[in-house]
Design a protein around this nucleic acid. Structure first.
Lengths: 287, 287
DNA sequence: GGTTCCTGCAAATTATTTTCTTGATAAGTT
DNA sequence: AACTTATCAAGAAAATAATTTGCAGGAACC
């Protein structure tokens, strides 16, 4: 687990002096990674030994080990603590977007429910037919993405972003099928309805959504993606990147579960694309 | 600039001993961040002062500064140097995917042509009509994504993944329009043809693709995305995440350029979604 | 042959950790 | 209620370890 989380988790069990140290590190990370133990101790109004003890308590070998741990987690996973005022210079915009995207991945990874995702992969790998649902720009893309990834392994899958179709498909599905749906907000009422229908018919359901949301409650397995989106209404992308990563993990696990079959089919698809293009077979599958 | 790049760039100008140090750091990063200067010097068969000088030459304050810089860049941007043999345990698969995705973003950022992207944003913001093209799973998603993002700002845009449609649209476009196309491989011959057509008609063209590729050559502005995909044919996702980030940057820049108009329209779209859902207006735009 | 640059040694400096001690707080005991 | 004892936090000082500086020898390159 990373040092920031540890610091926040342990905060309650720390002494006064140690809390002062923790706060300085949390608030002025740049200072903390560059400071010597004496400087840090000075700023926190404690003695150097107290800093050493603080580091030990957090599970580090020594003060320098602490700094390394700190620096290691800081490149990502840190900036969300302080939403800095950014300029609109293109380089800053780019930097900001990249950082936020990396953060989203970092947070996703931290909150990932590996057991649930494995269970979901097992179910998908064994499904007779898969229905992937999602609506509204973002989630519909995730649904197509699921189709795009899974059909390549020889699985039978269809995706739909159309509420009426989703309901009809959910009604038509059998207990040997699987229904997987995505909703960034977790409040897509129509998707909830489709899940309900599936549940009545004992069709297993998987949701990619915010945990605790209506959609999450309606599904058998939830793959939670809980990210603070911030309030920048221009940019849903970092969340989407996290969803894509989940799909990627899911697809990889499914692929491992149906290995031989998948490899053969992939090779066939690739062959098709290569001969169709210009023979450079190191190129990506599907442009 | 990050320390790894600096190390690789400077390698030619380093002395024998310094190269030995650099190689050890590059090959056994874990050792390097945890080692003391004496241990590192010992392993490289040099004296501690040489290590200090090495750090200074690389632009660091001191050895510990060097270690911090190292640890900082290491979380991402490092592992692509050693493609470690990964297990298929779900947690490892997840870890691997997340890391690769973060790396892709890191590399993208490093290779980003900010001037080109700004120029592209200016052109898109001023276009009378935008045509977004891309085919084959990955790029077609990028094309829809462009549409999904830009229409919200009140821009006129359509996307197509259909070669014949692309050609007809390119033929119908005017010099006041903009054609933007994506190709992961850079070898989508049909897209090249569409670009050619556009060029004849003096329609500005923008390409998201590998630099130096046929598609790149055919476009007026290239937004290069050059990533080593590795040879895992199962997973195109990390590249796609990089492309999405480019779209995100592009869309953000466009938004800033047409600010007032965009804000009004976004608010309207959001209002629509909120009343349609359940009144929690902190939810994302478009599920 | 001179110059430049690399390099290691030893000394000096600086940083970090250990040890020891004090003081505070809380629980138990008379 | 007052006193003892235990426990723990935290600093001072000492010890240790790590890092840097200054200097000088030596190699390589004009």
């Amino acid at each position: 687990m990373d040092i920031f989380t540890t610091m926040q988790d342990e905060r309650g069990r720390l002494s006064q002096s140690e809390i002062r140290i923790a706060d300085i590190v949390l608030n002025d990370f740049e200072f903390a990674v560059n400071a010597s133990i004496i400087e840090l101790a000075g700023k926190a109004d404690v003695s150097p030994p107290t800093v050493t003890r603080f580091c030990r308590r957090l599970g580090c070998e020594s003060f320098s080990d602490f700094k390394v741990q700190l620096a290691r987690t800081a490149y990502v996973g840190m900036r969300y603590l302080k939403p800095e005022p950014k300029s609109i210079a293109p380089a800053d915009v780019a930097q900001d977007i990249i950082t936020k995207a990396q953060n989203a991945l970092f947070l996703l990874h931290r909150g990932l429910d590996v057991a649930a995702i494995e269970q979901a992969a097992n179910q998908l790998a064994g499904a007779e037919m898969i229905y992937a649902f999602g609506s509204g720009g973002n989630s519909s893309m995730i649904a197509s993405e699921l189709q795009n990834r899974l059909f390549r392994f020889g699985l039978r899958i269809t995706s739909s972003s159309d509420h009426s179709m989703q309901l009809m498909m959910a009604a038509a599905a059998k207990p040997t099928d699987v229904l997987i749906g995505s909703s960034f907000s977790g409040r897509n009422a129509e998707l909830v309805r489709a899940f309900m229908l599936a549940r009545e018919a004992k069709v297993p359901t998987i949701a990619l959504t915010q945990s605790g949301s209506p959609v999450a409650h309606a599904a058998d397995i939830t793959l939670p993606v809980d990210l603070p989106e911030g309030d920048n209404i221009y940019r849903p992308t970092s969340t989407r990147i996290a969803y894509l990563a989940v799909v990627d993990i899911l697809a990889s696990l499914v692929a491992h579960r149906i290995q031989p079959q998948a490899t053969v089919i992939l090779r066939r698809i690739k062959q098709q694309l290569v001969t169709h293009r210009d023979g450079d077979d190191r190129q990506l599958l599907g442009d």
